[in-house]
């Protein structure tokens, strides 16, 4: 494992911990899109089908359990926990995420590395993760004052995949036959979707002003 990959996983872990911290301690999910959280739970559920069949390393298994556990518990908090629900902005979190699931499933059935159930599900999770942030970005455009934890959550979530891109470049040049177009293109699309958020987030941080996204 190279430094970019480890940095990417740690950044992803931080984003999840920031969100869990926000929801678990201050019992608030203000500015957080339940749709994106549900999409991420689906991403992990379809990507880690091999968690009990293919053992890669303890690290790999532990991280998979953390991502599965955190994503499902965040969805549970936002759907079931009375106190957390009060801060959920239902009226603005209206992105029809079904419109994302079906095209990703169809695309996975058309373009994949092997036509097996696990491989198609894994490919579906790669495509779905690329677009899973859209409901969250749309909600941020509609949210007047974005609190720091929400901004940090989205920032780290976007940063992790860009670190993975560096990891893929590194592995491409150091490992023979390491070519995975599906992951690379999806990861690039995913990162590009954050481009404008990164711009506004970094400029709000530099000018020391509140983060607001133009509608």
């Amino acid at each position: 494992m190279n430094a970019f990959r480890l940095a990417g996983d740690m950044t992803h872990l931080i984003s999840v911990l920031v969100l869990l911290l926000k929801i678990h301690t201050i019992k608030s999910c203000a500015g957080i899109s339940l749709k994106t959280q549900e999409l991420y739970a689906l991403v992990f559920a379809t990507r880690y089908l091999d968690i009990f069949t293919d053992f890669i390393s303890l690290y790999n298994t532990v991280m998979k359990l953390i991502f599965l556990g955190s994503s499902f518990s965040i969805v549970w908090y936002m759907r079931r926990h009375k106190l957390v629900q009060r801060s959920y902005d239902k009226d603005h979190d209206t992105f029809r995420h079904q419109l994302l699931v079906l095209p990703c499933l169809i695309l996975a059935l058309l373009i994949h590395e092997q036509f097996t159930f696990k491989e198609v599900m894994w490919t579906f999770s790669i495509y779905l993760e690329a677009v899973a942030i859209l409901p969250q970005l749309v909600l941020l455009q509609r949210t007047r004052n974005i609190d720091n934890l929400t901004g940090q959550y989205v920032f780290f979530l976007g940063a992790y995949r860009s670190l993975y891109i560096l990891n893929w470049i590194y592995r491409y040049f150091t490992e023979p036959h390491y070519v995975h177009w599906i992951t690379w293109i999806s990861g690039l699309v995913q990162t590009l979707l954050y481009a404008d958020f990164f711009y506004y987030y970094i400029s709000s941080w530099k000018n020391n002003v509140k983060l607001t996204l133009p509608a």
Binding site: D54, I56, K64
Partner: peptide, 10 residues
């Protein structure tokens, strides 16, 4: 045992 390497990422 040959580990199915290409799925070693998260």
């Amino acid at each position: 045992r040959y580990v199915y390497r290409s799925k070693d990422e998260l």
